[in-house]
Amino acid sequence: MKILTLTLTLFLLTHSAVAQDAADALRSSMADKNFVTLERIDRDALQELCSKPRTAAIDPEAAASIRQAALESVPEPGNADYLGDWARGEAIASNGRGLQYSDNPDQANGGNCYACHQLDPDELAYGTLGPSLAGYGARGQSPAMLQYTWAKLWNTHAYNVCSHMPRFGAAGILTEQQLRDVMAFLFAPESPVNRNLTP
């Protein structure tokens, strides 16, 4: 038992030592550039927990607590008005700029949705890191569906802990208005995303 405890302790110490080494290595290997500073090397609890291969297991209790905290932290849009302008949403989905040190910090960030997802089925230049969202509007606009989608965009970990999708709302990447526009791009019957749905 003592040997087991000792082995476990040593394992945890060396494991956390390598993890600490990674942060220290980055701090001595990187430099501030324009508005992007070394602060970005510091991770929050979620990032630390999720710094692992996709196939590696996460402690179920830690996952549950992350999921709950994420879900509870999602603010609802003013007047429960989830849908903005789909044309602006489409522009946000196609725009890959924002928060890189090569970007202009005075310009609005993009969502870069097409990097990972199919959206408008007529748009061929889409990525496959995430599932296809073509025809998303077929799911209908029940309050449950709107709230679920809103929460996924705001903080995906509310439903999928350690997903590689950015926390567009929680991390301040997109504004509330931008997220409403993206919602419209997904849900509006007249949006290109839903062009192939039979009315």
Partner: peptide
């Protein structure tokens, strides 16, 4: 360890894009 290091406003690591096969970005 750095390959799996998730950080920054987008929570990206190298593994986000390069940790599985058969995927593409755009």
């Amino acid at each position: 360890s750095l390959f799996y290091y998730r950080a920054g406003p987008h929570d990206f690591s190298c593994a986000t894009c390069h940790g599985q096969s058969g995927k593409r970005i755009r």
